[in-house]
Each structure stands twice: as structure tokens, then as C-alpha cells.
Design a protein around this nucleic acid. Structure first.
Lengths: 206, 206
DNA sequence: GTCTATAGATCGATAGAC
DNA sequence: GTCTATCGATCTATAGAC
């Protein structure tokens, strides 16, 4: 009994330590491009150790990474958007957490990258859930902040798409600022009350 | 001389026929995920034929595909945006051509997929140019249609990012409609005149 | 010009020493 | 639990028959 627990904990600890590094490698190279040799080199683990922690191999590593990402977003973004009493505060927090998470555009979105290519067939359910829950949670906050149901749904979808597009553009242009500008263009549309000095199209007002 | 020309033409013809199929495979699987076996099976060509048409192998195939995509966008979208006398007509054309090209969200953007992962280091210049020229050409049309320089630049960047994000979201949610809705949300902001009542996010009316 | 056969490297995954 | 050695499959690329 304690043996089972301790073995599970040990394996869990090894996974926990490896997952952030595995995530970066998948993020930078995609699923097919992240070879076991590369994953081993970056984590500092031999293949034996990797397979001890993730018995089903590369697919299990990617699943663990996707689960960790989902858990992070659920705790830091989705739950506050759905539950916090002040929806505008939750939306502001979403923007700042998002900018920090993606390192101001220097970091790509692993889930978005998987969605575009080979990860889609393998991890379709997790990918769909990541984006669907983001859209639904943001729409809930927008509704509570005064938007109609239809407007909230549309603006939430538009926002999540804009964030992904901003990340693509930042990587493509090698200009991380493209991501930050995307977030700042979204802010006054998500929180109209924060909009005092600029128009939605960026032109100065008054 | 004629021997050289005819040999070049023959090779060019083989490339021309193969490129659209190669593009689809790269689009669906990414660069690393598109194996020569798969590229050969889908084009119906043996490896010998593929290497005859593309002597430098897979990298040259991807370069040829990226060049073809750039040429298509330059002719159908970028040049009209920069040159056409009616900028709003060019922008409308951009929206309809974009929707058709990406098959209403059923098709991913190969350049965007490459930008996120392994293609970035290999094809960085082509990827950067594809997005930079799109942004610049659209900004030129927006300026001619009445936007200030700063507003045109910002809205162009926002538009190109939104298109990419719409494609990511459509693939992720397995809901092509997410792409079409993205385009329709962009339309009234790009062409305020197409909107009956111009609101706060459009240009001033009257 | 297109094919088959295959080289040489690397892939994901496993076995067994320690 | 981590390593090295190695498996068979697959990879990119090449050679040579036709």
C-alpha cells in the first residue's frame, strides 16, 4: 500500500519536474519535430528515465503537457472568468496573465500549434476543450459585465482568435510586440469602461 | 540551348503539377510531419521523380510551395490592395478571396503553421515576407480609403492576426464557421461604409 | 524521367546492467 | 530509477536499372 503510494509519488515527481521542459520542446518544434533525443537532451534524462516516467512514450508526454496547460489555464484564467464577482477584474487579469504566460509574444501557443498540424488527430479532444472552455468562460464574464448573450459569445470568440493570431504574427514577423499590441487593441473592447483616451481604431479622441 | 530550355521546362512542368499536392501535405502535417513517403504517395511520384524535380529534397519542395503561395497572394490580394483605384473594392475582394482560399475555414494556413514550429528557422525570411507584405498592402488600401496612417497600420495588423487566429480556432474547435464569423466581424471595421449605422468602432459618419 | 533498391542516419521504443 | 546498448521501423537521400 505505502509502496504503491511511494512509487506513484516518485513517478509523479519525475513527471512534474520534466513537464515544463517537455512543454517548451513541443512548443518550439511541434509534436512530430520533438524527437525523443531532443526531449531527453533538454530534460537531462535518458530514454530509460523518460520511459519510466511516461511508460507510453511520446504521446503520453504530450498528453501530460496538455493536461498541465489546461490545469494552469483553468485555475488562473477560466475559473476566475466564470466565478469572480467582479467580471471586469477577471478580464483584466486574463489579459495580464495571458501576456505573462506567452512572454509578451516570445512564446508560441502549444495548443494552437498542435491544432494546426499533426497533434490535431491525436489530441483533438484536449485541443477542442482548451479553446471551447476559454471562449465559454470569457463569454460568461462578458455577459456578467453587461454584454448581451450574443454579443458576449461573439466577442469572446473574436478575442480568443485574436490572441492566437497575435501569437502567430509575433512569431512570423519575429516581432513580439505584435502580440502586445493585439492585447491592447482588445482591452477597450472587452472593458469599455477602461476606454477614456483612445478610440477603438487607435485614433486619439478629443 | 534548346536542350537546356526543354530540360528546364520539363522539370518546371513536373514541379508545377506536384506543388499543389505538396502544399496540401505540408499544410496538413507540418514540415517535420510531411515525410517523403507521404509526399510521394500523395503526388503519385516515386522518390526518384521527386528528387528529379526538386534536387535538394524536402526543403526545396517546401520552398517551392512557399514561393507559389506567395505568388498567389501577391497577384490576387496584395497587388490589388496596393494598386487598385477603388481601395474598398480591393478590401472586399481580399475578404472573399481569403474565404475561398482557406475553404471557409476548412483549410489551415501553411505559412502560419510553419511560423509556429519547425519551419520558422528554415524559412524565416519567406514567412516574414508573407505576413509583412500582407500587412503593408492592406494598410495602403486602408490609408487610401480614408484611415490615418497609424490607424491603417494598426487595423491591418489586427486584421491579418484575426484571420490567422480564426483559422487556428476553426481547426481547433473543428468548426469551420469560426473562420467565416471572424471575417464577417472584420468587414464592417475595414469598410465602414458597408455598415448601415456606424458605431463607436468605425469611422465617424457624416 | 521514373522506377526499385538501398545506403546511412535517426526515429520511437525496449532490454538489461548497475 | 537511470543508464547504455540496441532493436526494428522509418527517415532523407542516392544509385543505378530501365
Amino acid at each position: 500500500m505505502s509502496g504503491v503510494v511511494s512509487a506513484a509519488s516518485s513517478r509523479a515527481r519525475a513527471r512534474e519536474a520534466a513537464i515544463p521542459v517537455l512543454a517548451e520542446v513541443f512548443r518550439e518544434h511541434g509534436y512530430a519535430g520533438a524527437s525523443l533525443a531532443l526531449l531527453g537532451a533538454r530534460t537531462g534524462l535518458g530514454k530509460g528515465s523518460l520511459y519510466h516516467a511516461f511508460p507510453s512514450g511520446k504521446a503520453e508526454m504530450a498528453e501530460a503537457v496538455l493536461d498541465a496547460i489546461e490545469a494552469w489555464f483553468e485555475t488562473r484564467l477560466y475559473a476566475p472568468l466564470r466565478d469572480e464577482s467582479d467580471p471586469e477584474a477577471a478580464i483584466r487579469r486574463m489579459l495580464s496573465e495571458t501576456e505573462a504566460y506567452f512572454r509578451s509574444g516570445g512564446r508560441a501557443c502549444l495548443v494552437g500549434a498542435f491544432a494546426l498540424t499533426e497533434g490535431r488527430d491525436r489530441f483533438g479532444d484536449r485541443i477542442r476543450r482548451y479553446f471551447a472552455v476559454w471562449c465559454d468562460s470569457l463569454a460568461a464574464a462578458l455577459r456578467r459585465s453587461g454584454f448581451t448573450d450574443a454579443a458576449a459569445k461573439g466577442l469572446a470568440e473574436e478575442t480568443v482568435a485574436a490572441i492566437q493570431g497575435g501569437l502567430v504574427l509575433a512569431r512570423a514577423l519575429d516581432d513580439p510586440g505584435a502580440f502586445g499590441r493585439t492585447l491592447e487593441r482588445l482591452r477597450p473592447r472587452l472593458i469599455p469602461g477602461d476606454r477614456d483616451r483612445t478610440g477603438a481604431d487607435g485614433r486619439a479622441v478629443g
